[in-house]
Simulated assay, not measured.
Amino acid sequence: MHSDQPLIHVEVVYALPNMQRVLKLAVVADTPIQEIIEQSGILAMYPDIDLKKNKVGIYSRNVKLDGTAREGDRIEIYRPLVADPREIRRKRAEQAKLEADKNK
C-alpha cells in the first residue's frame, strides 16, 4: 500500500439465512473488488464462498470482480439461489389454497 494513494472505506457483506456478516475496511482507491474481498478475510471465514460461482454486487447491482469500489460502497457477496423464487411462491399459493379448501 502506497501512502500517497487515498484510502476509501468500504464494507464487505455476506448474508446467511439467519445473519449478515459485515466487515468494514479501508483500501487503496483503485483496488479491484476481488482483492478487497480477499483482504477482508471473509473467504477464510466462509470457505463455501466461491468467487467463480457467487455473484458479487454493490448495493444490489451486479459488478465484475475486476471493477473498483468508491468511498462508502457496500460490496455484497450473494449466495446462489437454492430454489427459483417463482416456484416457491407457486408452492405457497397451492398450500394456502389447500388450507382454505380444508377449512370450508
Score class of each variant (00 low, 15 high):
V27Y: 15
D50W: 11
N103I: 02
I37K: 11
V27G: 00
P47L: 07
L81Q: 05
P85S: 02
E71G: 00
K55R: 14
A100E: 14
M45K: 15
E87D: 00
V82I: 10
D84I: 08
L23G: 11
G41K: 15
T68H: 13
L43C: 13
V63C: 04
V63Y: 14
G57F: 10
D48A: 09
Y78Q: 05
P32M: 03
K55E: 06
Q34W: 12
I36T: 02
Y78A: 07
K91W: 08
E76T: 02
D84N: 11
L43R: 09
A29C: 04
I33N: 04
P17Q: 08
L23D: 07
E99P: 00
I77S: 01
A15E: 09
R86C: 00
I77G: 01
I77R: 08
L25K: 05
E94A: 10
A100D: 09
D73E: 07
S40V: 04
R79C: 00
T31N: 01
L25D: 01
Y46I: 10
D50K: 11
K24G: 11
G41Y: 15
Y46S: 07
T68Q: 09
E99L: 02
I42F: 09
P17V: 10
L51R: 15
R70Q: 11
I42L: 13
K91Q: 08
G67L: 02
I42C: 08
P85L: 02
G67S: 12
Q34I: 09
V28E: 00
M45W: 15
E76Q: 07
A96Q: 04
V82T: 06
L16Q: 12
A15V: 10
L81D: 00
D50A: 14
D73F: 10
D66K: 13
I33S: 06
D101N: 10
V22C: 02
A83T: 10
V63K: 14
A29T: 04
Y78H: 11
A100H: 13
E35Q: 13
E87K: 14
R61E: 01
I88E: 01
E35M: 10
R86V: 00
T31A: 07
L98D: 09
V27Q: 05
R79L: 03
R74H: 07
P80D: 04
G72L: 05
N54M: 14
V28T: 08
K53Q: 13
I42R: 04
L51F: 07
E99S: 00
L51A: 14
